[in-house]
Amino acid sequence: MMVEIAIFFLLIFMIIGMLFVLEIENLLSAVVMMGAIGFGLSVIFLLLGAPDLAIVQIAVEVISVVILIRATIHRDIKERADESLSNISSIPLLVCIFFFFLMIYPALRLLPTFGEPVFLNFYSSSVYYLRDGFHLTGAPNIVSAIILDFRAYDTLGEAIVLFTSVIGALSILRYRNRKKEHNAS
C-alpha cells in the first residue's frame, strides 16, 4: 500500500512536469524538466522491484538530456506563447478528453487490479524462468539470466539497432567535413 501511494505521487509529479515541458517558453528549461521526469520514472522502477531497469533508465536519461542540451544550448530560442499549431479552445478539448475516457472505461475495467501480476497466474514462460532460471544458467539475477541467456538473440538485436542508430546519427552530423572537402576540390 505504501508503494502504491508513493507511485501515485511520483506519477502526479511526472504529469505536472510534462505540463511544464509543454507550456514553458525556454527550451533549455524544457529539456532539464524532461531529465527530472526521467529520474522520477527511475525511482518508480526501483519501487516496483526492477533495480536493473532503474539503473538503465538513469543512464539513458542522462545521455538523452546531454544530447538534447547539445541541440539547444547555443540556440537561445524562446518559444512564443502562441507557438501551438492551432489555437485549440479548451471546451472542445475537454469534450474530447471526456469521450476518450468514456470509450476506454471498459478497457480499464478489464485490466487486473494493481498488484496482481497477470503473467504469473497460469503456466507461462515467466514461471519457467523463475523456477528453473537459476539451475539452468547459474545467474542469481533472473533478469540478466533472461536477457543474456534465454533471450540472448533479443539482446543481440537490441545492440544491432543501437549501433545502427549511432551510425545513422554520425553520418547525418558528418556534413561539415564533407562540405570542406567539396570547397577544397
Partner: peptide
C-alpha cells in the same frame, strides 16, 4: 518475486 519477463523486454 515480481514478474521478470516484462523487465527483460522493457530493458531492451
Amino acid at each position: 518475486s515480481v514478474d521478470p519477463l516484462p523487465q527483460a523486454l522493457v530493458l531492451t
